[in-house]
Structure formats: C-alpha cells, structure tokens
Simulated scan of single mutants.
Amino acid sequence: MEPCVRVRVAKCQMLATSLFVLLLGSAMAATAVLSYFGPHFAVISSVSTDRTTYEALHHWAFSAGIALAALLTLGAVLSAAATVRGAGGLMAAAFLSFALVFCALVQAAFWRAHSPTQVEDAVLDAYDRAYERALRSVSGSGRQELVAIQDTFRCCGKRSPLGLLEGSEAGLCQGEEAARQDCLQGIQSFLRAQGNVVSTLIGLGLAFTVYAMLLSSFIWFSIRSGRYSVSQRARSCPPQEPRVYGRIQEGSPSQRPSKADASGGRLSPSRHSGQLLLLRDTHPPTHGSGDAAVSTRM
C-alpha cells in the first residue's frame, strides 16, 4: 500500500473513530446524569442526611463521568476538525485529550477491579440506616422514607435466613408488599446491572482511546513531515515536479552524439543539451542578429 493511500485510510478511520468516541461520550454523560438524578439513586440520597460514604461516592461518580464525557467530546471534535483541515496543532490537542481520558479510565478500571462492591456496600449501609430509623420512628416520617425506597426498588423489608419477618418488621410489609422480594437482593441486583454498564463503558473507552491515539499520532507525523498532504483538496499522491525540471528532463534524449556532428562543430544532444536549449529559449534573438542573417543571404 502506498504512503498516500495509508494516510487516506487513516483519515477515514479517524473520522469514524471520532464519531464513535462522540457517541461514547454522550453515553457516559447520560449514565452520569441518570446515576445522579435517577429515581433509584435520588431516593437513597434523600435518606442519607449526613455526609456518608455513599454521598462522597455519589458526587465523585457524577463529577468523574461528566469530566470524562467532556474530554471525550472535546477529543472527538478536535480530531475530526484536524483531520478535515490538516491542522497539526488541533491533532496534538486531540491526542492530549485522548491521553487524559485513557489515564482516567485506567484508574477507574483499577478501582473497579480492586473494589467491586464499594458502591454496593455504601448503598446497603444507607438502606440499613433508613430501615433502623423506620423501626424506631414514632412519628412515621422514617417509615415514609423507607416506603419510598421500597416502592422505587420494588422490594420490601429484610427477611431472615428462614424467609420470615419478625413482629416489628412484619408491620412494614403488608398486603401486596409482603410478596415483593427482599430489598437487599433487589438493591444488589440493580447495582450489579449498573456496574456492568459502567464496566462496559470503561472497556469501550479504553479501546477507542488507544485506537484514537494511534491514529492521531500517525496523522500528526504525516502532517509534520510534509511529505503527504492530508487535506481533502489534495487529489494526487506524489508532489508535482517543477516546470523547469520537467523541461530539462524532456530535452535530454538518451542518444549519444555522433562523430560527424562532433567534427562539424554542431551542438549534438547530450546530457547537458537540455540545459543549453533551455538557456537558448530564455534569451530571444536580438534585432542585430536578424539583420546579420539577412545580409548573409543577400
């Protein structure tokens, strides 16, 4: 494959990768917003009145998701603009954005691998505190918070290993609510589904950022070298030769001068005849030479 063809293929791949990175950034932003303003997480935040571990993780996850989405969107826009315009500075800025996202995603993947149940434990601790307040509450405000959690997660209470509820706990789950699943299991299943979505986004982000960094670095070196044009206005791969050099090449035949031409003193085609012809063409004859030719003929 010729170098210019490789550059064009890299340009097409860079534009496609920028589109997928832009979609990935939108997905990360949507996930961060849903995790912060969604009903399941919002109802847990409402019962966490004090500065608990869940509150810290909640704000950290939202801020990290929005920051990653912004960097991905910025990198996608810069890489697309640099590919279309052939700007090396924009491509370097896009590479820097992708590198920052890659480092952040590596840290997020490391955290997910070593602390897979940290968010789950924080949410369950918040539910346990709400459950204990509901059992000790006399006014009924604590029970209203617990009922809101149970209605959101479609669960009810915490069952014993035998599957039975004690006397004080049985009053929290009556009628159709008693047939719901355990809240601990319901919350765990929901959080694990959300964790799988986050892990998928992290894996896709790592793959796309690595590929985007490779493409952006290749296109940047192509732009800086100046050997190949990455602008869409370029239609030919190799650079055109100068006109003077082309005339010199056209005026240099491969035949060697004959002995008769050499003895007669005539200028025969040689390796430097093209240059002499070019010089002869660049200096037009004067009027004096024309008059001398007319007098000779007469």
Rank of each mutant, 00 (worst) to 15 (best):
E2N: 12
R8V: 03
V9C: 11
Q13H: 10
L15V: 10
G25D: 06
S26M: 15
A29C: 05
T31K: 13
A32G: 11
A32F: 07
L34G: 07
S35A: 09
P39H: 06
P39M: 04
H40P: 02
A42Q: 12
A42D: 07
V43N: 09
I44T: 01
S46M: 12
T49R: 13
T53Q: 14
Y54S: 00
L57Q: 14
H59W: 12
A61P: 00
A64Q: 15
A64E: 14
L71E: 05
L72V: 03
A76K: 06
L78Y: 03
S79R: 00
A80V: 03
A81R: 05
A87H: 06
G88Y: 01
G88V: 07
A92I: 07
L96I: 10
L100H: 01
L100V: 09
V101T: 12
L105T: 05
Q107S: 15
A108D: 05
A108W: 01
A109C: 10
A109Y: 09
A109E: 12
V119F: 10
L124M: 14
L124C: 05
Y127V: 00
A130E: 03
Y131C: 02
E132N: 09
A134W: 01
A134M: 03
L135V: 08
V138C: 00
G140E: 02
R143S: 08
R143L: 11
A148L: 05
A148T: 11
T152C: 08
F153V: 01
R154H: 15
G157D: 13
K158L: 15
R159Y: 07
S160L: 15
L162Y: 10
L162R: 14
E169T: 11
L172G: 00
Q174K: 13
G175A: 03
E176A: 13
L184I: 04
G186D: 00
S189A: 13
L191I: 07
A193G: 12
N196M: 14
V198Q: 06
L201D: 02
I202L: 15
L206G: 03
A207H: 02
F208Q: 07
L215P: 01
I219V: 11
R224H: 04
R224Y: 00
A234G: 06
R235K: 15
P238I: 02
Q240M: 07
E241G: 01
E241N: 05
R247E: 13
I248S: 04
P253I: 09
A260S: 06
R266E: 09
L267Q: 12
L267M: 08
S270V: 04
L276D: 08
L279Q: 13
R280V: 06
R280T: 07
T282S: 13
T286E: 12
T296C: 14
R297T: 13
